[in-house]
Amino acid sequence: MEVYGVTLASRLLLGTAQFPSPAILAEAVRRSGAEVVTVSLRRESGTERAGQAFWSLIRDLGVRVLPNTAGCHSAREAITTAQMAREVFETDWIKLEVIGNHDTLQPDVFGLVEAARSLTADGFAVFPYTTEDLVVGERLLDAGCRVLMPWGAPIGSGRGLNNVYGLRAMRAHFPDVPLVIDAGIGLPSQAAQAMELGYDAVLLNTAVARAGEPARMAAAFAQAIAAGREAFLAEPMPPRDMAVPSTPVLGQAFR
């Protein structure tokens, strides 16, 4: 997959939150094969300095970072956070989140398009967390985005692909745009389904971090995503309503 001029061999992007320990996070990243991990910015406490240790751990992993604007509820907050992230993480990449609803964590697509336009003009490579809405996708591309990241289901819900029809339509509507399912994936089978639909990659976090054995689950996701991609390339058969015998009928006994 190529995004913003960078070729990625792994189609799994992994979040770094909610892991039981830094060591387990590091092992999960290794087992996932992910080349990109998402990170964030938060207020630094006066005494703990947890942020400095975390950043040191991530740098040691040797992966590319994709900072997010999680928790931002307006375009202005997201833009300022993106500018701060660019300086700290030394990357133009930004996973743009502008949240519109506290309960569903649904994107505020109006603020999203506004922030995307401003950030791309400022030289950012914007990865927008959006919905499967095709018109919003068009607006984001007009704003300069070169990748779209629709949700599968609400963040952290683990419900998989809520609107398969809509996601299939999105894939068909944007055949040449890298599409990444971001959020809502709970199981490797759901990630495989996204890849079978022709999505280019999957970004997930909770499904791995909250598993009983996160590193093992990370490996399971890596296999499922690779299998789903292979299945897509192999061109799956179309479903049929009626049974069709797979064993040859010709030469059948007792007829």
């Binding site: 770094t16 990170v39 964030s40 938060r42 207020r43 942020g51 997010n68 952290g156």
Partner: peptide, 26 residues
């Protein structure tokens, strides 16, 4: 407030300063 601007950026009474550091994120 970019790092390079900090020496010349004069604070005023009541300013709101945000200090953000790298953190885990999804």
């Amino acid at each position: 407030a970019p790092a390079r601007s900090r020496p010349a950026l004069m604070l005023r009474e009541g300013d709101r300063l945000e200090l953000l550091a790298p953190m885990r994120g999804g």
